[in-house]
Design a protein around this nucleic acid. Structure first.
Length: 283
DNA sequence: ATCAGCACCTGTTGGC
DNA sequence: TGCCAACAGGTGCTGA
């Protein structure tokens, strides 16, 4: 679920909620996806104060004042819920789908908790020396961030140049080329750009690249403002759903009329993932 | 070097 | 209604 807009929503909210707070501990009921072992992790963060939060692609980083940083990946169904003594019992946190799968709990000295829930158990938590964060393989190998000002049309074209034979929709998912785009926003961005996802990179005309870039950035920025897309699972740190789902043009809308031209939206697959498009609006 | 395909989990949906 | 296969927003590894 969580792609750039959803992860950025969590990172921004955490910046407001936990910077300046002191961790008191950590406990886990699913140690498989935690590095180092939970007891060691707990010992290393206890007493440390949060100094900031960052995003690398779809990775969440929480920096501490003791030289360590937490790195968290939500994968498909992960959530980070921030609860205080005041709101812990609120209705928003009672939903089984989100609250029924809490595997890890970070505790703060003021009684607040940061709780990691993940139905499918794909998400993970790591503690690394802050200096080692950007050396972590999955972060080191990330391409340029999709919302980076340095991602220009020229840069985009040169990055895609060695992928001539591949479908553009498949390359957009590659985190090593452009970081942050997932299955929802590749479909949306290519709809807005009027380009079919199966198109080979080599067939994209010179003039189409700027449309693709502008569309991608616009879709990601708007989705971030609306706290992402909730098509089932995603919730922000307050347990609230995103609001971009109402704005989706094609994702998840197979068989429904295109919002621009009324033609039925279609669904196909690239590899193992589905994508959605309008055969009339996209060439 | 690249890339398709499957594996990692659990829940939901759609077809028969 | 019941069962089972297919599928779900992300990556990491394997082997061609």
């Amino acid at each position: 679920m969580p792609e750039l807009p959803e992860v950025q929503t969590v990172v921004s909210q955490l910046a407001r909620k936990i910077v300046g707070k002191r961790f008191s501990g950590f406990s886990s009921a699913w140690a498989k996806q935690v590095t180092p072992l939970p007891r060691t992790l707990a010992r290393r963060i206890a007493g440390a104060i949060v100094t900031g939060t960052r995003r690398f692609g779809k990775h969440i980083v929480i920096d501490l004042d003791n030289g360590y940083s937490l790195i968290i990946h939500l994968k498909m169904t992960g959530h980070l819920l921030y609860k205080t003594d005041e709101n812990r019992a609120d209705k928003i946190f009672t939903e089984d789908r989100v609250n029924g799968y809490i595997h890890h709990i970070f505790t703060f000295t003021d009684g607040a908790t940061l709780e990691f829930s993940d139905m499918r158990k794909f998400g993970w938590v790591r503690l690394e020396k802050t200096a080692a964060v950007e050396k972590l393989k999955s972060i080191r190998e990330l391409g340029i961030d999709a919302l980076s000002p340095e991602l220009t049309v020229e840069r985009l074209r040169s990055l895609f140049a060695r992928k001539q034979a591949r479908p553009i929709g498949a390359v957009l998912l590659e985190q090593t080329v452009i970081a942050g785009v997932g299955n929802i926003y590749r479909s949306e961005a290519l709809f807005v750009a009027g380009v079919r996802p199966e198109r080979r990179v080599g067939s994209i005309k010179k003039g189409e690249w700027s449309g693709i870039l502008v569309s991608l950035k616009r879709v990601l920025r708007q989705a971030t403002r609306l706290h992402g897309t909730t098509d089932g699972d995603f919730r922000d740190t307050d347990g609230l759903p995103g609001r971009f789902q109402r704005t989706l043009f094609v994702y998840g809308r197979a068989g429904l009329p295109c919002k621009k031209c009324g033609t039925m939206v279609e669904r196909k697959r690239l590899g193992q993932r589905s994508f959605f498009f309008c055969a009339r609006c996209q060439q």
